[in-house]
Amino acid sequence: MAAPLELYCWKGDWGLPSVDTDCLTVLAYAKFAGAPLKVHKITNPWRSPTGSLPALKTSEEGSVSQPSKIIIHLRKQKYNADYDLSAKEGADTLAFISLLEEKLLPALIYTFWLDSKNYVDVTRRWHAENIPFPLNFYLPNRIHGQQLERLRLVRGDNGLEPGDDVEKELYRDAFECMSLLSQRLGSHKFFFGDSPSSLDAYVFGYLAPLAKAKLPNGKLQQHLNSLDNLRNFCTNILTLYFPSEGRDPPSQKTSSQPEGGDCDNEPNRRRNQVLSVLVALGAMLGYAILTGIVSIQRVQAQGALESSHRHQHQEEEEEEEE
């Protein structure tokens, strides 16, 4: 066995191993299949080998990014959580994953990225606090834009304002989807009997953020909470497969939210000031050089002697100009 595979994913919070649905799916699948991964929990997607998260760095095929592809890759490495499934159960897996993507994902995007209260209070705040400077000014908006675009295109119409009609329509589909999942799960521990499979990983990935995030506008959450077996399903997987995450949050929560936020900001602010001054200076200098207010002359070697005092002269000029 070569070096362990490396997985890059969003870091966790709210008592979850990661805050992102796709990352959670992959992490859960890896745990179910027993794949030994070296997990890098990062907050800067640009540091992942593919530029997006999650990403799996493999020795033979480069890096793969989509959860389905990562799972296929793990399966090829003999880490297969679906080994015991019958062909029909495999087909069901595929079908229910489609159901999640078509019905639940749009509502999740809406709840986390479009609902203005949730977005401002939770999603944007989390990303702004966790993504390193200076990307935290740029990336949250960019991700927001991408998610919006995705939702708009998936729904296939142009008007997409966070309004009552859109919300009700999306939530109606999502409620139905959750109820269907709950009926399918019944009183089982996992979707196909006693051991978890990839469908469990997907459902966990979609539902866990909803179950754990503290959203000010929690209509979807309320519906999930009313379905006992689904909620238990999520907490079960968390306690069984991610025991360390389950214990962390209470202590982390109290310390990091009220005070941690403030004292984290202080050193950053000083650094931000210095950096912004530097950037401004750089921009001014660049502008001066580009427009020809200040010019830099290359001096040939042969004219070095002669040029030494010219050079001095020039430097004086430069200072004057600036």
Binding site: S98, L99, E101, E102, E176, C177, L181, Q183, R184
Partner: peptide, 18 residues
């Protein structure tokens, strides 16, 4: 029954999705 209806919806989404 309920489970069958859930499965039917899921397979319909499979067709739409893929």
């Amino acid at each position: 029954d309920e489970v069958q209806r859930a499965e039917m919806k899921a397979y319909m989404e499979l067709v739409n999705n893929m």
